[in-house]
Amino acid sequence: MVDKAEADSDKVVQDVEVPNSLGLHARPAMQLVDLANRFTAEIEISKAGQRVDAKSIMQVMTLAATQGTKLTLTARGDDAAQAVSALAGLIAEGFGEE
């Protein structure tokens, strides 16, 4: 599911699709935010032009990302690459659901 991991200067970008049937609902959103907060990098998630902070539960919830939604992860900072790959992994494997 991991499409590409590109590094231009210190920015890391990766696309990922939400596979689980309930989408980015409460528990997955919490897992995602929890994981994002373990990195120092600034991490953004965007969905069709809407960009939110991956460390903010409020913003992640208001993405209202349902099954099949295409998301783009963008991170800047020291551990940007690790952050993006960890988050993309979590999303791609459906947050351990199903």
Partner: peptide, 11 residues
């Protein structure tokens, strides 16, 4: 969930 909301810097 509520706890995370309340601790959310963005909020």
């Amino acid at each position: 969930m509520h706890w995370l909301y309340l601790r959310d810097r963005k909020l």
